[in-house]
Amino acid sequence: MDVFMKGLSKAKEGVVAAAEKTKQGVAEAAGKTKEGVLYVGSKTKEGVVHGVATVAEKTKEQVTNVGGAVVTGVTAVAQKTVEGAGSIAAATGFVKKDQLGKNEEGAPQEGILEDMPVDPDNEAYEMPSEEGYQDYEPEA
């Protein structure tokens, strides 16, 4: 019985440690998101679009440190934060509304985080759909 109880105690310690790591990862992701939003706020009209992409990228980098179902929630929060940063930029006159959601080359930025393969159960990952990809044929 002692062996059984000791095993359960060790398992509990492992769960607590994993929860603490997840909590730490979420806190880091939130900190990076805040950094990115402050970065966007300090940019001029020309830099705002690039700044919004930076927020998304920093958040995406930190999301990889967070495991399990938390990833889905962090990704949703990050996307809403990026959308909010863009709205703030438009409201303050840093950028025109028609410039939001495009990178410096004018290509749409939507789907940055949505296409990231995420499995809350950590069982399997699927690649994003290939609808947006084109076949590449090298020139002879």
Rank of each mutant, 00 (worst) to 15 (best):
A11I: 15
V26N: 00
S129A: 07
G93C: 05
V66A: 09
P108T: 15
Q99V: 10
L38W: 10
T59R: 02
E126F: 08
F4N: 00
A17H: 01
A17V: 03
A107D: 12
D98M: 10
A53M: 15
D135I: 11
T72E: 07
G51A: 04
G106E: 11
V15G: 03
A78V: 06
G106D: 03
G31S: 15
E105W: 07
V71W: 12
V15R: 00
E46D: 07
V74E: 01
Q62L: 06
G47C: 11
A107C: 11
G73H: 12
P138V: 14
E104G: 08
K32M: 03
A91H: 10
K32P: 01
D135R: 04
E28Y: 06
P117I: 12
K6S: 05
M5Q: 01
S129Y: 08
T64H: 05
A27S: 15
V77I: 03
T72H: 00
S87I: 04
G36W: 12
A56S: 07
V40M: 11
L8N: 00
T64I: 08
A27E: 01
G36R: 15
V66C: 07
G86V: 02
V49Y: 08
Q79M: 03
K80E: 04
E57R: 04
T64K: 09
P120H: 05
E139A: 05
E137D: 07
K45R: 12
M127W: 13
G132Q: 12
V95P: 07
M127A: 12
K96Y: 14
S87D: 08
K23V: 09
Q134M: 06
A17C: 09
V77Y: 15
D98V: 09
E130N: 10
E57F: 10
V16N: 09
G67V: 11
S42E: 12
E114N: 08
V95D: 10
G93P: 08
T75Y: 14
V3A: 04
Q99W: 12
A56V: 14
V3E: 01
P117N: 11
E110C: 12
K97S: 10
L8I: 00
D98A: 12
D119I: 02
A17T: 01
E137Y: 02
K34A: 09
V26W: 08
A124C: 11
E83W: 04
K32A: 06
K10M: 02
A78M: 15
G93I: 09
V82M: 03
K21V: 06
A85M: 13
T72I: 15
A56F: 12
G7A: 05
A27V: 12
A91V: 05
G51C: 14
V82T: 03
N103R: 13
Y125G: 12
G47Y: 11
E20A: 09
V118P: 05
S9A: 03
D115K: 11
E104A: 06
A107V: 06
V82A: 03
D98G: 13
E110H: 04
V48A: 04
G86E: 15
D98S: 09
S129Q: 05
A69Q: 14
E137I: 13
G36H: 15
V40I: 01
T75A: 14
A140F: 09
G36C: 02
N103E: 06
Y39F: 11
E130L: 04
G86W: 06
S42C: 13
A69H: 15
T44Q: 00
V118I: 10
A89I: 14
E110I: 05
G86N: 12
T81V: 10
D135G: 05
Q109M: 08
P138C: 04
E20W: 15
Q79H: 02
P120C: 05
V95Y: 05
M1S: 00
A76T: 14
P120Y: 14
N65K: 11
G86C: 12
V77N: 03
K102W: 14
T72V: 13
V15D: 00
V71H: 04
S129I: 03
L113W: 03
V15I: 14
T75M: 12
V48D: 00
Q99D: 11
V49Q: 15
K32D: 00
K6N: 06
T81L: 03
V82W: 01
Q79A: 06
D2V: 01
T59P: 01
A91I: 11
V49D: 01
T92H: 05
A53T: 01
E131W: 07
L38T: 07
Y136E: 10
K97M: 01
K45H: 05
D115Q: 14
E35D: 01
T64N: 08
G47I: 09
E83L: 08
I88A: 07
G73A: 05
T72N: 09
A17D: 04
V40Q: 00
D98P: 09
V40D: 00
E123D: 01
A76Y: 12
Q99A: 10
V63S: 02
A78W: 10
V48T: 02
K21Y: 13
G31V: 08
V26L: 07
A124W: 09
K6V: 03
P128E: 08
K60C: 11
N122P: 09
T59E: 01
Y125Q: 08
K10D: 03
G51P: 02
P128D: 06
G31Y: 09
E139R: 06
G36E: 05
P128M: 03
A29D: 00
E57I: 02
A85W: 02
L100C: 06
Y133D: 12
Y136R: 13
F94E: 07
K60Y: 06
G36S: 10
A85P: 04
A76K: 13
N122T: 02
Y133E: 08
T33V: 13
Y125S: 14
K10V: 10
A56L: 03
K10T: 05
D98Q: 14
A69M: 14
E110T: 09
T44V: 07
H50W: 15
V37S: 01
V82L: 11
G67E: 02
Y133W: 07
F94G: 13
A19D: 00
K60H: 09
E83K: 11
A76P: 03
K34H: 09
N103T: 12
K23W: 15
D135A: 02
T81G: 07
K80R: 10
K43M: 04
I88L: 11
E46K: 13
A140W: 13
N122M: 05
Y125P: 15
S87V: 03
A27P: 00
E123V: 12
G106V: 12
F4L: 05
K96N: 08
E13A: 08
M127T: 10
Y133M: 15
T72Q: 02
K32F: 14
P128N: 12
L38H: 08
E123Q: 07
K21N: 03
K23L: 06
V55K: 01
G73F: 14
V82P: 05
V55G: 02
V40F: 15
K43P: 00
E110M: 09
G67S: 12
G31N: 15
L100I: 12
G47Q: 00
